[in-house]
């Protein structure tokens, strides 16, 4: 899958679940593999780009999750 498209899917997954479910990176990878046939390595690389750009961030709530940065 195209990297930009994959990034968009990841972002939307996180965005849509806001307030309902927190995703751990592992949950995202499993979901992407199951629903889109994306390999873990691909998903990891895409998530890393999203994190490096600050589009997504890691949060800690008794464990690490993926979230959208809070608006200032």
């Amino acid at each position: 899958m195209d990297r930009e498209e994959l990034k968009k899917i990841i972002y939307e997954l996180v965005e849509k679940s806001m307030g309902k479910k927190l995703y751990k990176p592992g949950d995202l990878f499993k979901k992407l593999e199951k629903e889109h046939g994306v390999s873990k390595a691909e998903a990891k690389a895409a998530l890393r780009e999203l994190m490096d750009a600050g589009t997504l961030i890691y949060s800690y709530k008794g464990g690490s999750y993926v979230e959208i940065p809070p608006k200032e």
Binding site: R48, M51, D52, Y60, S64
Partner: peptide, 16 residues
Amino acid sequence: HGGIVGVRGYGSGVIG
């Protein structure tokens, strides 16, 4: 309790 802080790209190494 905790909070969301860190350095860009890392999810580890900073305790808010």
